[in-house]
Structure formats: structure tokens, C-alpha cells
Design a protein around this nucleic acid. Structure first.
Length: 487
DNA sequence: CGACCTTAGTTTAGACTAAGGTCGGTGCCCTAAT
């Protein structure tokens, strides 16, 4: 079969990017496949193309509603109409209609949570499934253990669907995370295609400051001098808001804050304005980034301390997809690691909460409130309820799982600290962490090896010309047409 | 760690400060009554 002609006719490309063809051939050969491809190399093509050569539908498990909407929209623009996002954006009747005619759709996007609804799953079971895809598969390991436990049960879903051919896609995963992915998806002898996480055009800098105030001043100076656009990451919504306001006061007008507290419509607007160059700096929490397709991001600054190397790499990996010089700066003040430590502590239930949950006699729905659990702690307890052990045994077992998980998270944080404090080349240390061979190029590498700061600074104030920009009100209306109909 | 809130103490009535405690980040899903 001629893959190149399908590539040309269906997608309009003349050639494959690195990794794509190998992954597609592996799938067409019938092998479960794990693909770790660098950001921006067109991962979605890896399942979209083989879809036209395989019998049956393609199920794509996606972590975010906005990501599903983006992808289905893009596919429709390309001319692929038999695609649907099966999620809570659909009204009751729309969903019913879709479920009755599921076999009409070649591509079905769905969240892990929705996939666990017995009614939905029973409908999907009746389909012929050509390919089962898990996009952003590192979420299994990163979120599955506590935040979104349905990610850990995707293997069970696969079983109940008759173990369909499966593709797991990610951009950043250590060997251990890759193992987790294969284990929890229950892949059979998976083919692995692992490409380097190294991004030679991104320089690294760890900037140590003496105090919080000094850190703020340094950040403002960077925001003024560095080439835009850029992202500044915070571990607090409030800090992101305040810094966005502060930067506006400092004369950097095109600045916006983005976090989970900003309402959905506003979030989409900010994201679009950033992509079209109307916003130069985004002050964000970890809510921002997944699925952002913007090639010319010039800097990513971390104001707070990242929880682990993987998430740090994912966040800085959003810079410089166009291959041009870009910089990742981490601002550090002694004691910064205490904040993520606090966050980690609140992720998992305490021993006394575990014991109390185990002996809980009332309505399960009241347990969350009565035990003073966060939603996340509760979902952890809820997930392990299915172990079905006698009360005391359950308490011991779950407490040990919890302790193990806590130790793991602390270890990840320690690794991050080690990287910050290390006096070895930043890039080599990252590659070592991901189990990759050393990289010889030393030019414009990191603050240890040295780089030319001028490469990343704005030469002069750039007057941005108002280009042909989309009409936002129209776009938003289109996206939110439902709420208008209902309201 | 820093920001913010509550509480206790002082002192003689509403308001001040200091001390002590808590919190901080990611997202799916419709539960049921107008």
C-alpha cells in the first residue's frame, strides 16, 4: 500500500516527518505501539492516516475537552466529516442520536471518564474498532494514580472492547512512565518508537535570587527585555493574576492571565489571541499549554518550582517549535521547593482519612465532606475501594499504596531540586534523566556551558501591525452556539 | 516560602496589633429540582 499517496491526497503533505512512517507501519503490521515523538512533529497523523487503511472506527482517548474540540474542528476543516467528540458538550438528544449511529463515525474522540460510563461503553462495544488511541498517554502515569483514576483503568476498558489494536502517543516520558503506559493499557508485546526529548534550539537558565521581591523584579526585567511571545508559569492562580496586572502596569500591555479559575469562554479567547499574536505574554498555571499549537514561542519562564522533571520538560517544550533560538528560565529562591511539597501533601489522603474511610458506615457520598478530604483525596480512596478486602486489610494495603506514591512524588521533586542545584550542563543532566546518550553541541546550551543572551532579547521595540485577524465575537459565538440556544 | 484569614489580647468600645493557622495546581462527569 502506498502511504505516500494517502499522505498527499488526504493530508496534502509530500513527505513524512521523523518517526511518523515507522509508527504507521508498525500499526498496519498489527502491533500495539508506543510512540514518543517530539512536540510539534504531527503525532495525530500517526492515527489519522492508518484509519483509512484499517477496517472499523478509531477511538481516540483524549484528556481535555478543548483538545477534542480543536482536533475534531481541524479534521473537519481538512474535509473529514465522519468525526465526533463524544463528551458533555453534546446535549442529551445530540448524544442519543450520536450513540444510535456510532458506526457512521470513523473517528470518535472521548475522555477516559466518559469511556467508563457503562451505558456509553456498551454502545462502543457493539462497534468494530480498528484502532484504539491514547493521546497524551503520559497522563496515565501523571494523573492516573490520584487526580484522574479512570486513566489507570483503560486496560480494563480495552479488555471489554476485545483488546483492539492500540497506539499510545506522548512527547515526554521517562522509561518508568513508558512502563506504566504499557502496563496499565495492558499492551501485548508493544513496538516502541522513542525519539529524543532534546531540543537543541532551547537554551536553559536557572536564575537564583536572594528573595521573593528580587525574583519579582528579575521577572519583570525579563518580561521587558526578552523576545516575545512567551509564557510565564506560576503554581498559584493568584500569583499569575497579580503578575499579569503588574506587567500591564509596567507597560507590557499585551499580557493576560490563564488558569482554571478563568471562565471557559475567556480562556478560549485568550488562547486564540495568544496564537494570533495579539497577546505577547501569558501568566499561567499548569492549566495552560496542552494542545497549544504555536510555533514561535520564544521564552518559557518558571516563577515557581516545578513538581517534577517531566512536567518541566513538557512546559518548556512549548517554546521554539519553529527551531529558532528560544530560552527556558527557571527563577529560584532558596525554599521554593516547599510550595510543591505542600501541594504533594494535599494530593493523597492521610492515614487517618484512609482508616476512617475504611470504617465508614454512612452514605459514601457524605464521606468526602465528613473526612475533610479534598476531591482528589476522595477520588483516590474511591478508586481503591474496588480492592474489596476486609476492613483492616484494606486500610493497611491502601495506606501502603499511599506511602509508596508519596515517596515517589517526593523523589521526583528531589530530582528536580538536584537538577536546579547541579553544576553540570543542564542539557546533559536532562538527557541523562531520560536515559539518553550525551549531546555534544555546547553552543547556546545553558547557563553552565554559556550562551549568547542577545539571541533571546528584543533588539528594539517592535511595532506590531494589525494584520487580518479573526473576528473573535463571531468565533466565540460559533463555539458557544449551544449556550446561546439554551439561554 | 508568602499571602491571607482568624483568633486572642488590650482595654473599657470599637478598633488596633501580634500571633497562629491554613492554603497554594492540573479535569472529567450530571447528581436533581425548577
Amino acid at each position: 500500500m502506498d502511504l505516500n499517496s494517502i499522505l498527499k491526497t488526504k493530508f496534502g503533505f509530500d513527505r513524512f516527518r521523523e518517526g511518523q512512517e515507522a509508527v504507521i507501519r508498525s500499526l498496519l503490521g498489527g502491533a500495539d505501539t508506543l510512540a514518543m515523538l517530539p512536540t510539534g512533529t504531527g503525532k495525530s497523523l500517526c492515527y489519522q492516516l492508518p484509519a483509512y487503511l484499517l477496517k472499523g472506527s478509531v477511538i481516540v482517548v483524549s484528556p481535555l475537552l478543548s483538545l477534542m474540540q480543536d482536533q475534531t474542528e481541524q479534521m473537519k476543516m481538512r474535509g473529514e466529516k465522519s468525526v465526533i467528540a463524544l463528551n458533555s458538550f453534546l446535549t442529551g438528544t445530540e448524544r442519543e442520536t450520536a450513540l444510535r449511529h456510532l458506526q457512521r463515525y470513523k473517528f470518535i474522540f472521548i475522555s477516559p471518564e466518559m469511556l467508563h460510563q457503562p451505558y456509553i461503553l456498551s454502545r462502543i462495544k457493539q462497534l468494530e474498532i480498528g484502532l484504539f488511541v491514547v493521546d497524551e498517554a503520559h497522563c496515565i502515569s501523571q494523573w492516573g494514580y490520584d487526580f484522574r483514576p479512570e486513566y489507570l483503568s483503560l486496560g480494563e476498558v480495552r479488555k471489554s472492547l476485545g483488546m483492539p489494536l492500540t497506539l499510545a502517543l506522548t512527547a515526554t516520558a521517562t522509561e518508568q512512565v513508558r512502563e506504566d503506559i504499557c502496563k496499565y493499557l495492558e499492551l501485548r508485546a508493544p513496538q516502541r518508537f522513542i525519539y529524543s526529548v532534546n531540543r537543541p534550539n532551547i537554551a536553559f537558565k536557572v536564575d537564583c535570587t536572594g528573595s521573593y521581591r528580587e525574583k519579582e523584579e528579575k521577572l519583570i526585567a525579563y518580561a521587558k527585555t526578552l523576545k516575545k511571545p512567551g509564557i510565564i508559569y506560576f503554581s498559584s492562580k493568584k500569583a499569575a493574576e497579580e503578575m499579569a496586572e503588574r506587567l500591564r502596569l509596567e507597560g507590557i500591555a499585551e499580557t493576560a492571565a490563564y488558569h482554571s479559575g478563568v471562565d471557559q469562554e475567556q480562556r478560549i479567547l485568550i488562547q486564540q489571541q495568544f496564537i494570533y499574536g495579539q497577546i505577547g505574554i501569558i501568566c499561567a498555571t499548569s492549566a495552560f499549554g496542552m494542545g497549544i499549537n504555536k510555533a514561535d514561542i520564544r521564552f518559557v519562564i518558571h516563577f515557581h518550582f516545578p513538581l517534577q522533571m517531566e512536567s518541566y520538560l513538557q512546559e518548556i517544550g512549548r517554546a521554539g517549535r519553529d527551531g529558532l533560538p528560544s530560552i527556558a528560565i527557571l527563577l529560584y529562591t532558596a525554599g521554593d521547593e516547599l510550595l510543591p511539597l505542600q501541594l504533594i501533601e494535599s494530593e493523597l489522603p492521610t492515614h487517618s482519612q484512609i482508616a476512617a474511610f475504611s470504617g465508614w458506615k454512612g452514605d459514601v457520598k457524605d464521606a468526602e465532606f465528613a473526612l475533610g478530604c479534598t476531591e482528589q483525596q476522595y477520588s483516590f480512596l474511591q478508586h481503591y475501594k474496588k480492592l474489596q478486602l476486609p476492613e483492616e486489610e484494606w486500610t493497611l494495603k491502601v495506606a501502603s499504596i499511599r506511602d509508596e506514591r508519596m515517596a515517589y512524588k517526593r523523589r521526583k521533586l528531589k530530582e528536580m531540586e538536584h537538577w536546579v542545584r547541579s553544576e553540570a550542563c543542564r542539557r546533559q543532566e536532562i538527557l541523562r534523566y531520560f536515559g539518553e546518550p550525551a549531546f555534544s553541541e555546547k553552543e547556546n546550551c545553558c547557563d553552565i556551558c554559556g550562551f549568547d543572551v542577545g539571541l533571546y532579547e528584543e533588539k528594539q521595540a517592535v511595532q506590531r501591525v494589525a494584520e487580518t485577524l479573526p473576528a473573535w465575537d463571531f468565533l466565540l459565538q460559533k463555539i458557544f452556539r449551544r449556550s446561546e440556544q439554551n439561554g
